[in-house]
Design a binder for these strands. Structure first.
Length: 492
RNA sequence: CUGGAUGUGGCGCAGUUGGUAGCGCACCUGGUUAGGGACCAGGAGGUCGAAGGUUCAAGUCCUUUCAUCCAGACCA
């Protein structure tokens, strides 16, 4: 299994190459782990954005945008939040460059030192709450449901493409509510949105649940999460939704006057998903031939490869393909005709497989004569020759089927790697084999920490979906009484 | 910051006991090819991570330094 994990990890980096690359920054630069998202990768991100955005709006959320720079003092206000973020941030200290007096190039103008440093946002709670203070005075102003699509920077010590880059793209929702119940409901609503998006759009089975106190977001009273299993059996936190209580309202003095005329602090949530989802997509579905994209997110859903020897054949085939393409596009599918005449078909087949295009159509002189087409599906790597008649309908069904099948495959994989575990010896063995283990936990941070120290495994979540398992038992490590099982796994 | 490994054309690598850099892929040109990653011929591209030292001579030996990768600490 260890070998398998290594092999998978190597594959992951190959699978990424069409989507993302490490930024090629200056040699002496200390900026590590910045990424360039390539056009093909960004197209997937755009699709994710569009679908998520629609889902957000259906819950009443609106988009807004807040500044990239946050005054340092804002971070001093929320003590817990600071403890979680203060260390690994990019700090702006100057605002001007000047020509280097000793020669070529430019240097920082020392006279342009900022009175107060600016922090490049690692997340926007602080600046948004300092803004909300001016938006909220009455119960009539609530709730405020804002989301922003933005980039954030965290000066991570170790980075990994998509999973942990220094700069990444995300959306962060920040809401303000009159009551704790309403805020908790909002946090729950949004994690449900994420779970639905993961399952239905990304074809990614996830476990929904609460984070243990140790794993909570800095400054949150409760953190809800969706956890996915990658093909090496490791867990990936794919999205989080936080109930922030009144912590930020109190730190930034955000109060409203309720119906009785009394001042009340507002209740807050924040929730986000990032370009890490791209990593999840790749690591959950890819195979030895490259990416496998669910049709709902594939920038190109159908690619057509013509096969010909003579120019006349090419012309006839391409015009037939245009015809088919129009039909498919009318049904809302994205279609590409690969008409590059410098490459051989076999090369193109391999290339589009690497890119994960769900369906490939090949038409050659033989097909042209018979009125047929070769249909190849990426998920199963199988192909069949079929009549051109009714091809549109067939493709529509096929894309649908591929979407479902990719989910099912990931689902089955996960199911076969999740199990209940009640023996500590068994736990130690299985956890390193890439299993999710459902175990009893006594609810203490100490036990969780000890388990982490000994095995690297963490509590991924306390499930709230179909994995919820409330029953009496004994803690896997301490043997103390427990009321429910939680999900343990080794995480990215 | 701690431990281990590695830096040689765009990518992946070789380079013996020191003798003045080579291979595969990719790239460019021409031709033949085309139903699963084509073939032949020709061509271009490197101050060997950087600085210093030893030597008649350094990719190779010594010192320093920088960077990258893996394992920790941090995290979406």
């Amino acid at each position: 299994m260890a070998d398998q994990i290594t092999k998978r990890s190597e594959n992951y980096s190959q699978w990424y190459s069409d989507l993302v690359m490490k930024a090629d920054l200056a040699e002496q630069s200390q900026v590590r782990g910045c990424m360039v998202i390539k056009p093909y990768g960004y197209a997937i991100w755009e699709k994710m954005q569009r679908i998520l955005d629609d889902m957000f709006k259906q819950t009443g959320v609106q988009n807004a945008y807040f500044p990239l720079f946050i005054p340092k003092s804002f971070f001093s206000r929320e003590a817990e939040h600071v403890a979680g973020f203060a260390k690994e941030c990019a700090v702006v200290t100057h605002h001007r460059l000047m020509n280097d007096p000793d020669g070529k190039g430019v240097v920082v103008d020392p006279s342009a030192k900022l009175e107060e440093e600016l922090i490049v946002r690692p997340t926007s709670e602080t600046i948004i709450w300092s803004t909300y203070k001016n938006w909220i005075t009455s119960w009539r102003d609530l709730p405020i449901l804002c989301n922003q699509w933005a980039n954030v920077v965290r000066w991570e010590m170790r980075t990994r493409l998509f999973l942990r880059t220094a700069e990444f793209l995300w959306q962060e929702g920040h809401t303000a509510h009159a009551t704790a119940e309403e805020a908790m409901q909002e946090a729950r609503t949004m994690v449900d949105v994420y779970a639905k998006f993961a399952r239905e759009t990304m074809a990614l089975p996830v476990i929904e649940g609460h984070k243990s106190p140790n794993e909570r977001f800095a400054g949150a009273l409760d953190t809800l999460t969706i956890e996915a299993m990658m093909q090496d059996g490791k867990a990936l936190q794919a999205g989080t939704s936080h109930f922030l209580g009144q912590n930020f309202a109190k730190s930034f003095d955000v109060q409203y006057t309720d119906k009785e005329g009394k001042s009340q602090y507002v209740w807050a949530t924040s929730w986000g998903v990032s370009t890490r989802l791209m990593g999840a997509l790749v690591m959950a579905h890819g195979d030895d031939n490259g990416l496998v994209l669910p049709p709902a997110l594939a920038p190109i859903q159908v690619v057509m490869v013509p096969i010909y020897r003579k120019p006349e054949e090419m012309e006839a085939i391409l015009s037939k393909m245009e015809e088919i393409k129009k039909g498919l596009e009318a049904q809302g599918h994205s279609v590409k005709i690969d008409n590059r005449d410098t490459l051989r078909p076999g090369f193109k087949f391999a290339e589009w497989e690497l890119k994960g295009v769900p369906v490939r159509l090949a038409i050659g002189p033989r097909d042209l004569e018979n009125g047929t087409v070769e249909v190849h599906r990426r998920d199963t790597l199988t192909k069949e020759t079929m009549s051109l008649e009714g091809i549109g309908e067939h493709i529509a069904h096929l894309l649908d089927d591929i979407q479902k099948n990719i989910y099912q495959k990931a689902f089955d994989f996960r199911q076969s790697n999740v199990e209940k575990c009640d023996s500590w010896d068994e736990f130690k063995e299985k956890i390193t084999q890439g299993k999710f283990l459902l175990c009893h936990w006594d609810g203490t941070a100490e036990t969780e920490q000890k388990i982490k120290d000994e095995t690297k495994a963490t509590i991924r979540c306390i499930p709230i979906d179909s994995f919820v398992c409330e029953e009496e038992g004994k803690d896997i490590y301490s043997g103390k009484p427990s009321k429910q099982r939680v999900v343990f796994a080794i995480a990215y």
